[in-house]
Write a protein that binds this DNA or RNA. Structure first.
Lengths: 186, 186, 186, 186
DNA sequence: CATGAATGAGCATTCATTCAT
DNA sequence: AATGAATGAATGCTCATTCAT
């Protein structure tokens, strides 16, 4: 299959980035983990930064679209939120390394890239604003409400990475969705 | 004045770490920002890692103690939570760089250090368990409830660093405390 | 050609080590003398110390074996000593830098390595003990007799490095061998 | 007493130089071993090199004079040699560190300094030339004969530093002197 | 005399990247 | 496509030395 080495590199990079950070991971380590030499990286990516960006693009924006689609299938803000949380935790359970990478990449060099785009944050914000218009979500700053929900949902995922919460996360999805809902319900 | 250079170094380091990450900040940069040469770092710290650890120790554990004290002055879990959130946001407003550093250092090399100790996380957990015993907080996994509250409180701080929420945070402390409370209230 | 850069590095290192000592020679200088950049050193050696050790291993123990072989071809301790001295001085004339390096490395970090092994010192000691059993060498502490012979043979080589004795040393090999022999003959 | 710190520094330096070489010993280590701070070194010496030179001057040339005096009290080359060896080994037994330093300093930066001067080497050479004139020492290149004797005498000292020969050396002085004498006797 | 903080040049080593094969 | 050798800049750190106190 075409791109086998490229995939190995991206997979190895995700694992290492999740464990040691982007700056803390060297090209040598990535190559070694993928079973190739450093030079091979540059056959598939312009450089380390491009490798990071490609992983991010390949997963972050599609993930936002996936989330938005899940939201669209539900009726009412509460059901939408439950659908979104389920989808987030399913993604987490599917590939923890990738999720951890996405979590930390947002604080790093990916800030600009994710700026205007349809990110997961914007999906939740849309949901919040619709709920407020419908009167089911309390009147408060929508950006703030979004951050509160985001934190309530993502922090258990982070906590799971560090052993504070037991996997799989899908098992607690509805519980968290309900808690997040009460936090902002009108 | 005692410790002037050492303090300059720590202050400069916090600012740079918050902006570019620990691995992304060089000793050269820290020294330049503090107005000294690199060698001076090593008169005050064993190495870069020791500098990171000293900043962490000097602020993280004391911060947890401060939080626990704030919690102790309030009556009932709801009031306790409000007091804790106020204290957290006051700390954030006081020194955003330091708060940002503390936030990211937890994911990095500080994990072990903060392990058993009386961390902010444990302060909230204590509050949650007490509330559950008193029947004011819903019966659910205490660790999970802690993570939900933690996320609801800290994510707005993170969002503030990235322009999603307007400073000062103290202005929204009670609002957030109330939202976090509803999320877990019985 | 195999190992060209590696060989250049080792050759350059030997020359510089002989002239300025191991601690007194920098990786910068070695790389420059070999016509490469510093980084190239680390493709071939784990570090500076490993470079020193590899030079030592590649020459010191083989040299001991060569000496032992020369000893084995002669009959009687006196002839053996003459054969050994000839071989030592031939090696010196062949590569003075290498010999100088071997001489000084023995006092430095190579002490342990050469400890139990079949070193040149042990070759001479074997010769001495055999001579004593045969009655051609005086009864005295074999270790001491070995050191006396060793000094009588090596000091002219050291002296040659400093202009006290004219090269080539092979020209005085028999003379020195005879003097060393008389020193310990029965 | 005046010069107490200076003496401590020189004594500490000798010990460290003997153990780790001159380049391998740092000013920090010397200061620490002497119980002062680095700055104190520069109150007594222009720099590290001056410290090395002062130790060398204070001991090497006086030692040569002592040797020459010892030689002068004996009658005939053989007796002279015995007197010299006794004095050398007595010096070794008195301060092994100092002797080891002197031994290695000769290969290092002290070469020029010791060049024209009345060094121990020249004392032995004088003895050899006189013996050759008197007919008691074989006719051979005097510089070579000097090196042979030098090696036969000093190598057991070096060997003693490395555990090949048991101290005290004064116990084997006459034995070594006799061996060295036979090596060059007519 | 001695300290302790600071310097600035230099150290061994590592990095992301290039390129001939 | 991939390798393996090489680069050159940068990294964290150490060195001998200086100097105000």
């Amino acid at each position: 299959m075409a791109g086998s080495t490229k995939d190995s590199l991206m997979q190895a990079a995700v694992r290492l980035f999740a464990a040691k950070g982007i700056d803390g991971t060297t090209t040598r380590e990535i190559a070694a983990a993928a079973g190739v030499t450093e030079g091979a990286i540059y056959r598939h990516f312009v450089g380390k930064e491009a490798l990071v960006e490609e992983i991010f693009h390949r997963h972050y924006l599609p993930f936002a679209a996936e989330l938005d689609a899940a939201r669209g299938t539900a009726e009412g803000a509460e059901a939408e939120l439950r659908a979104v949380v389920r989808r987030v935790y399913a993604a987490f359970d599917r590939d923890r390394d990738l999720f951890a990478f996405l979590l930390l990449a947002q604080h790093g060099p990916m800030r600009r890239i994710a700026d205007g785009a349809a990110t997961p944050v914007r999906v939740i914000e849309k949901l919040v604003r619709a709920g407020q218009r419908a009167g089911t979500i309390r009147r408060m700053d929508a950006r703030l409400a979004t951050q509160i929900v985001l934190g309530a949902v993502l922090q258990p995922a982070t906590g799971s990475l560090y052993g504070e919460v037991s996997p799989p996360l899908i098992a607690i999805a509805d519980q968290v969705a309900e808690a997040a809902w009460r936090a902002i319900a009108g």
